[in-house]
């Protein structure tokens, strides 16, 4: 697994190919459509992050000292956003997830297209991923 910074750089350079919001939208929708399905047993309130216009279900599991996420949403676009986060965070150690600055999100130029409610949704997803990392790293100490 490459370092988080490398992955973030790759995503940024992928996005540099896009000239317009429309192209970015289509790319994120495609990521959302390709996101591996979440096991139905996790699609319950315990795993739910409620947003203003969409819901997200997120699970994190530890394997060999690394955390792997799986998720679903009723919005394909939001699934695409989760997929971007998972590219960077899934398969990393709890410590690096907790330290992650995730500066690539700003570099993608998405925030201007994502209204505050949805930007907040993104923050809630990041917070939830970090909560998993914190819980797992505390449990292993």
């Amino acid at each position: 697994m490459s370092s988080m910074n490398q992955i973030e750089e790759e995503i940024i350079s992928d996005f540099e190919l896009f000239d317009s919001w429309e192209e970015k939208y289509h790319y994120i929708i495609e990521l959302g459509q390709k996101l591996a399905p979440l096991d139905e047993k996790y699609k319950i309130d315990e795993y739910k992050i409620k947003g203003c216009q969409s819901s997200v279900w997120l699970n994190g599991e530890e394997r060999n000292g690394k955390i792997y996420f799986s998720a679903d949403s009723d919005s394909t676009f939001v699934k695409g956003e989760i997929a971007l986060l998972m590219m960077v965070l899934s398969g990393q150690t709890p410590e690096s997830i907790l330290d992650a600055k995730l500066e690539f999100i700003d570099a993608l130029g998405l925030r201007q297209h994502i209204a505050v409610t949805r930007a907040n949704g993104l923050s809630a997803m990041i917070k939830q991923m970090k909560t998993y990392a914190l819980a797992i790293s505390s449990a292993s100490k």
Binding site: S20, W21, I29, Q53, S54, S75, T76, F77, V78, R118
Partner: peptide
Amino acid sequence: VNALDAGMFLDTKGIAVRTG
């Protein structure tokens, strides 16, 4: 089709609608 996804699609085409 999720209303938010469709609303954002319309936005990419310059069309302003409300979702939610």
